[in-house]
């Protein structure tokens, strides 16, 4: 596989890899390093890529495993949220300000979910993969994914309502 060919297969999902890494590692810099490292690994294994049904699914699995490893080795050190710049589209300024608070609240709520649920929320609600694809990436059953996802979605909503009632958001 030549470099240009490799890049053509790999570039379409580079943002997805980055976003998944960021979801798990939180810090942007960590996620950038992870993405770089992962693509380098993919490039080194380029001869074997043909064996996989979907290179993208394989890359996502690799990302998940790599980030979990990183998290394990980084357990002692502090990972911080580095930046959060949201781009809104056609909303008036007042609404934007109101929303911004609750949007960063959503981010924090997702951050507090268990790793598995975080992963699934990222893959389903943000990247919008089909359950079948997620099952392939995470090597777990679709029913298990649905259970986790449902749990995560419910937790997020409950927490939002709770925060809302306290008048914090």
């Amino acid at each position: 596989m030549k470099q240009s060919e490799f890049l053509n297969t790999v570039i379409p999902f580079k943002d997805k890899v980055f976003r998944l890494a960021k979801r798990l590692l939180v810090s942007t810099e960590e996620a950038e390093d992870a993405t770089q490292e992962l693509f380098f690994k993919l490039w080194k294994n380029r001869e074997k890529l043909g064996d996989y049904k979907s290179v993208e699914a394989f890359a996502m699995t690799m990302t998940k495993n790599y980030c979990f490893d990183r998290l394990k080795s980084k357990q002692a050190s502090n990972l911080k949220l580095v930046h959060s710049n949201y781009k809104e589209k056609d909303l008036s300024l007042q609404k934007k300000i109101e929303l911004n608070d609750s949007i960063s609240l959503v981010e924090r709520l997702i951050e507090n979910l268990p790793e598995q649920q975080k992963l699934i929320i990222q893959l389903r609600d943000i990247e919008q993969y089909e359950f079948k694809e997620i099952a392939e990436m995470l090597q777990i059953k679709q029913t298990a994914i649905r259970v986790s996802l449902s749990r995560a979605r419910k937790t997020i909503r409950e927490q939002l309502i709770k925060q809302h009632n306290y008048g914090i958001s």
Binding site: Y86, I126, H164
Partner: peptide, 23 residues
């Protein structure tokens, strides 16, 4: 409360990996 959830989902999908990939 769902509004912020879906807003968050769609905005975070816009995040890009801006560095170039080094092989």
């Amino acid at each position: 409360e769902y509004q912020s959830v879906f807003h968050y989902f769609s905005t975070s999908k816009n995040e890009r990996f801006t560095k170039s990939i080094q092989l």
